[in-house]
């Protein structure tokens, strides 16, 4: 019945940025995630949803090469167009990739920031790591990115300890974006924030992702966050993907029993 099916329209970039196949991670005899395959294209936001223990964070960490999978591989299309198997790259290459072409936004900003140095130094660190040695230029870039994430530039010399939770999270985002990454991993980026703060942050992320054309792998247990930010969604349970598709398709027409349970549990305001 699919004789008319064609490849996607020519207008979109046709090569995936990130491709995982057969990704499996065991913790002893417990399953973290099992046999997961996925592709992510430039500019695409993929939400991985599921409850605690569903394996979504394990999957995220395997994709981001922060965790070595028991089996399977993750390939990434580098800026020069070559496709590399992450776990066959040297650690040095991988770390360069992680601080240039990638970003990682932690749920708890303390995990992603240097709390003892100023906001400006937090944003400038990646630039210095890739060789920037002009103080004035580094500071100029830091100011620019603080503005982008709606932090007043006169806070540039303040420590993140003096920042509210929402500001810290925005600072963490700025710190990640300063090298113009193409792919950002986000682990519950709005978790633990007040609802009003969350809304502002979500909107900021939404705008940045659209303006910068970022590809994002977003882990969240909050379907409202996934609805607002993601184009595509994967539902995980027990370490495997039980349903995936367009975000509004999953939310409007959930098929699996567990997905239906999740969707029916969204609070209506």
């Amino acid at each position: 019945m699919n004789e008319h099916v064609e490849t996607p329209p020519v207008a979109i970039e046709d090569l995936p940025l990130l491709r995982a196949s057969g990704l499996t991670r065991f913790y002893g005899d417990r399953i973290g995630c099992r046999d997961i395959s996925l592709s992510l294209w430039p500019g695409e936001v993929l939400a991985i949803v599921g409850e605690s223990g569903s394996g979504k964070t394990t999957l995220l960490n395997c994709l981001a090469s922060r965790l070595v999978p028991t089996a399977g591989c993750v390939e990434y299309r580098m800026r020069d167009g070559t496709v590399r198997d992450l776990f066959r790259m040297s650690e040095a290459e991988r770390r360069v990739l992680m601080r240039t072409d990638w970003g990682f936004v932690h749920q708890n900003p303390i995990d992603g920031l240097r709390m003892s140095v100023s906001a400006g130094a937090n944003v400038g660190e990646r630039l210095m790591a890739v060789g920037a040695r002009h103080y004035g230029k580094i500071r100029g870039e830091a100011e620019h990115w603080l503005e982008r994430v709606e932090i007043a530039t006169d806070r540039i010399d303040d420590d993140p300890r003096a920042f509210s939770g929402g500001m810290r999270q925005r600072l963490q985002i700025a710190r990640n974006l300063v090298t113009n990454p193409r792919l950002v991993f986000m682990d519950e980026p709005t978790g633990g924030l007040d609802v009003s703060v969350q809304a502002r942050l979500l909107d900021l992320i939404r705008q940045l992702v659209a303006d910068l054309g970022l590809a994002v792998v977003l882990v969240t247990h909050d379907l409202a966050v996934a609805r607002l930010l993601s184009h595509r969604m994967m539902v995980m349970k027990g370490g495997v993907i039980i349903e995936q598709g367009l975000t509004d398709r999953i939310l409007d027409d959930p098929r699996e029993p567990y997905t239906q349970l999740l969707v029916s549990s969204i609070l209506q305001v």
């Binding site: 650690e91 040095a92 140095v117 400006g120 103080y135 540039i156 010399d157």
Partner: peptide, 22 residues
């Protein structure tokens, strides 16, 4: 140690940046 091994010394300049900023 890993940072030394991979000659990742951006952090050293973060310290100097902090000095100038402060």
């Amino acid at each position: 140690r890993k940072m030394h091994g991979l000659a990742e010394y951006g952090l050293m300049h973060v310290k100097l940046y902090e000095d100038i900023a402060k």
